[in-house]
Amino acid sequence: MSRVSRPLKLLFFVLLVRPLVLIVLGLNIVNRNKLPTQGPAIIAANHNSHLDTMVLMSLMPLRVLHKVRPVAAADYFLKNRWRAWFSLNAIGIIPLARRGRMDRETLFEGCRSALANGDILILFPEGSRGKAEQMQPLKRGLFHLASAEPDVPVIPVVMHGLGRALPKGDPILVPFNCDVAIGDPLPLSEDGKEFITAVEEAFQRQLNECLTWGNTGA
């Protein structure tokens, strides 16, 4: 799995992503100190835009950047050769098959071996980006992964405003300040439904802490 090119990833983030996030966007961060900077850990975030991953990764200290691995849809990010090369080498995604039936063991193999390696996973439990600035029902995958790795902390992160800056299906980036609210590690639960409800409640709480919350006029 260690195809990630450390210098390439570092250059990409230092020269392109960080200036973009700092100048073109601009972040209001709530509880930055709660962001895990040591693996293994799972960051569970809401998903509105391709910028979500870039913003989360730009918050990470450069020394652990190579350890940060977004879990991303194989059908989208490995679609063609160039996109696949870039996703795997410059960003270091862990591809996940969204379609087709397969048992959980194989599905989460990549995630679990990365966690065993001490990586920090970025996971979007909504499954896809959805409509701009609207939360979708959460999928169960996060629960299954968290149950299989009970010692790994799951930290909920809510981002707001990125769906305004670069929504799904529109290639034009419009500058906006965005919010990132980081919460406390989620308690593990026996029951999948209960766990997912806890995640949803944490997301809602953190969304209320966002400075620009309520201004998308949707």
Binding site: G26, N177, T216
Partner: peptide
């Protein structure tokens, strides 16, 4: 630019107006 971006981020804007806002910038 920073002031306009900040203002447009706190004030309600319509999602359909993204291109209009680009003209403001």
């Amino acid at each position: 630019f920073l002031a306009l971006k900040e203002f447009l981020s706190i004030v309600p804007t319509r999602l359909t107006d993204r291109r209009v806002l680009l003209w403001l910038y």
